[in-house]
Simulated scan of single mutants.
Amino acid sequence: MNMLRRTWFTGLLAAVTLLAGCAVTPPPASPPTPQARAALAPDGKLRVGVYSGSPTSMVTDKNGKLTGVAYELGRELARWLNVPLELVEYKRIAEVLEAMKNGEVDFTFTNATEARARDMNFTLPLVSLELGYLVPAGSPLQSASEIDRVGIKVGVSQGSTSQGVLTRTYKQAQVVPVPTLKAASEQLAARKFDAFATNKGILYEMADGLPGARVLDGRWGLENLAIAIPKGREAGLSYLSSFALTVRRDGTLQSAIDRAGLRGTAEPAMR
């Protein structure tokens, strides 16, 4: 009798575990049409463009596992499409955007600017991030309003939106392009410039590895991040929009944000 009870309980536990697993990873609301799948993954796989060091793109967590919003949403879309995921890693966002423009990647997650919309199509914005500054230990700077002064040098990612905007905006501070986020951390620690400018998600990530570094109070703008695909893939936009709305509503997006440790978020520009 006891053996029968144990067998029954084991079977029940297995069934509950199976159901719980299904609840965690539900199937897509509807399968893609052949046209949508061909548009979104034309090579039979989803090539996701990422760059390391940004929680909005790809980072490594404390357990050595890959995470990041672009990486996790790309993995989820590949599951929806029932195609393999191919991760394509670059050194900086400008290289991801160039690859997108050339059709070398099928998917990324980035700032949805008017200039970028000439080369790619975006979903609605899913995440808004404050733009700010990181300063090294011992810096006398206290707020974003103190940056645009004579003699101040501000590092930016080469080819980034920050480089373009701040170069046009500053009246006195000097913009210093940097090839990678790793180089930015090294040069900031070595006092090659006075502050580094980008979204606060990246800044807080950098600050974790730079003892005494601080993200300044205030902001100089906002980034509205969205899923992006290359131009010419319009047959997949309706399905992609449904995907974007679903991951935002069902908690998939928030879970990716939490796992990536993304900080500095603001209210999204659209709901």
Rank of each mutant, 00 (worst) to 15 (best):
L225T: 13
V175M: 09
T180K: 04
A256H: 12
T180R: 09
Q172M: 13
L240H: 12
D208R: 15
Q142H: 15
R259N: 12
R191L: 05
D217E: 11
F196L: 01
L216G: 11
Y133I: 10
R249W: 03
A226I: 00
R219T: 14
A173P: 02
L245D: 15
R248K: 06
Q187M: 15
I147C: 01
N224Q: 11
G138R: 07
L240Y: 07
V135C: 06
I152E: 11
G232P: 07
R149M: 07
D194I: 02
G159C: 09
L203V: 00
Y239E: 02
T252V: 12
L141N: 03
V150G: 01
G261D: 00
V150M: 03
G155R: 05
L225D: 15
A137L: 13
A183P: 00
E205A: 15
I152L: 12
F243K: 01
E205L: 09
L203H: 12
S143E: 10
L237N: 10
D148W: 06
A189P: 05
V154N: 13
A207K: 07
A184H: 10
E146L: 02
V135Q: 03
D250C: 04
G201A: 02
G155E: 06
A195T: 04
T167E: 13
R248F: 00
L131A: 15
V247N: 03
L225C: 13
A183D: 12
I227N: 07
T169L: 10
